[in-house]
Computed example of a mutant assay.
Amino acid sequence: MTANVQVPSPRGSRNTKQRAVVLDAVRSLHNHPTSADIYDVVHRDHPNVSRATVYRNLSVLSERAEVLRIPVPNAADRYDFRCDNHFHAKCSRCGGVFDIETEGVDPLARIMDDHGFEVTGFDLAFSGVCPDCRRNSGE
């Protein structure tokens, strides 16, 4: 007779309904939402899902590279459904975070070719003022 033993799975390896709901919320928000923004969307349709559950699942999704966590100094981290290598710009006035397309620009190849450095990821965000904020201030 063999014993039926449950071996605990590593953190976040199971897909759960809550995780799917959080991932759908990130994908539905195309403006690099904060965890609070994501919670608002999840809570609207699933009021029984707690804030802690949303935050925990965002952490797991980020660890699994299913969403990209964008650290923002002096502000709430943002999340991106795009996990490919690309840059971001943050507006110092409205706090918006925007994708910067890097097609045709490959700084990683230069780092690897010129310096033999194996790049496994990067965080790069430009700071400035977005076009809407410049237009609204008359610049």
Rank of each mutant, 00 (worst) to 15 (best):
A75F: 09
I100T: 06
V97T: 08
F87V: 10
C133R: 04
R135K: 10
I100C: 04
G96M: 11
R110M: 15
C133Q: 01
D114K: 01
V129C: 06
P8C: 03
H88I: 06
L108M: 14
D114N: 10
D132V: 15
D132E: 03
R44N: 14
D132I: 08
R14Q: 07
D80I: 12
R56L: 07
H32A: 04
R14I: 06
I111K: 03
A25Y: 02
R110A: 13
F98Q: 14
N48P: 08
G138C: 06
R11G: 01
V129S: 04
L68V: 11
N85K: 05
H43W: 06
A25V: 02
R51I: 10
G95E: 09
S35T: 02
I70A: 10
E139S: 01
R11M: 11
R93W: 14
L23I: 03
P10V: 04
C133Y: 05
Q6K: 09
P47I: 00
E66S: 09
D37P: 05
E101I: 11
N31H: 14
L29V: 07
R14Y: 05
S35Y: 07
R14G: 04
V67Q: 06
T34G: 02
R56Y: 10
V49S: 05
S92I: 14
D80Y: 04
N136C: 09
A36M: 01
R51V: 12
E101Q: 13
A89E: 15
I38N: 04
N74K: 12
V21M: 10
D106C: 05
D99L: 08
S92H: 10
N136I: 07
D77I: 08
H88F: 15
V67N: 05
A75G: 13
G104W: 01
D132T: 09
H86W: 04
P131M: 01
